[in-house]
């Protein structure tokens, strides 16, 4: 029963990692960009949520209504203003520019909010739980997992059922020809980053309700998201969902053996999968 509990809790924890990963997966799928600052943007989302809840007095979940569009706008501006200039055949510019951005974000947050750990107050939601078949499940982890499934489903639907998704796939396939068809890739990339950061806002707020956070934790969130993407297989959104769950379960199982092993066992699970299945469990596009 203990072990079953660990697996179930790990699955729900994986929901948070799916939310970390979804934006990363989307951006890579559309423009082959890997954003090193992704984790810091998640933390930025958490801080924006904190500011909204403390100044306006909204519940953190209600703050989503403000933070999600705000992060979307930031994403569009960031892409058009900065990241579009780095795209091309050379790998270094996007990598180093997003790395620089990561340092700027981290220290900017440090300057604004200090290094003190912060947390968002979600009231009764934080402790509420339901009992299912002898297992006690937190309402917040359940809600997070629900968000994760909804986000993946929503992105999948956008990609394969809407004109925007068609444009994403066309630009991803062949930028020049897409441009000939009247699609401005700079605008499309901006929209993709806006969507990715909108998802990141959800991730940041749920992170900030669940645990305390400070400006330095972005790198770790990037790594979790990245591991979920690779485990699931590049370019496969449902694979990313599976990857996040596997990572979460590996962590809770590791923690069960020894609390100090929680994060480490997640990394080891990732490395083992990388050794056995280099393209992830459900690959769609080659890395």
């Amino acid at each position: 029963m203990d072990w079953l509990n660990a697996i179930v809790q790990g699955t729900l924890l994986g929901g948070l990692y799916v939310l970390f990963a979804a934006g990363l997966s989307l951006i890579f799928g559309v423009m082959r960009l890997v954003n090193i600052a992704h984790g810091d943007l998640i933390v930025l989302g958490a801080y924006l949520g904190l500011t909204v809840t403390t100044t306006v007095g909204l519940h953190p979940l209600a703050a989503l209504v403000i933070v999600v569009p705000a992060m979307g706008l930031i994403g569009y501006a960031l892409q058009r203003g900065l990241l579009n200039q780095t795209l091309g055949d050379d790998l270094l510019p996007p990598l180093l520019v997003t790395f620089g951005l990561s340092v700027i974000l981290q220290n900017g947050l440090l300057e604004l909010y200090t290094a003190d750990p912060q947390k968002m107050d979600a009231g009764a939601l934080e402790t509420a739980s339901v009992t299912v078949g002898g297992l006690t499940l937190g309402v917040l982890p359940l809600l997070t997992f629900g968000f994760a499934v909804a986000v993946i489903w929503g992105l999948q639907w956008t990609f394969y059922r809407t004109g925007l998704g068609r444009a994403f796939r066309a630009v991803s396939d062949n930028q020049d020809i897409a441009q000939l068809m009247g699609l401005n890739r700079r605008h499309i990339f901006g929209l993709a980053m806006a969507l990715a950061l909108a998802v990141t806002a959800i991730a940041g707020i749920l992170l900030g309700i669940r645990t305390s956070f400070d400006p330095s934790i972005g790198g770790g969130r990037l790594i979790f998201g990245f591991e979920a993407v690779i485990i699931g297989g590049l370019g496969n959104l449902w694979g990313t969902l599976a990857g996040g769950v596997i990572l979460g379960v590996a962590q809770t199982l590791g923690a069960k053996i020894d609390p100090g092993w929680q994060i480490l066992s997640g990394h080891l699970a990732f490395l083992i999968i990388l050794a056995i299945r280099p393209n992830g469990l459900f690959p769609r596009i080659a890395a």
């Binding site: 620089g100 981290q106 900017g108």
Partner: peptide
């Protein structure tokens, strides 16, 4: 550190 990050970005671009 923010200045360093900015300098690196401007340099790269």
């Amino acid at each position: 550190l923010i200045v360093l990050g900015l300098v690196a970005i401007v340099m790269m671009l």
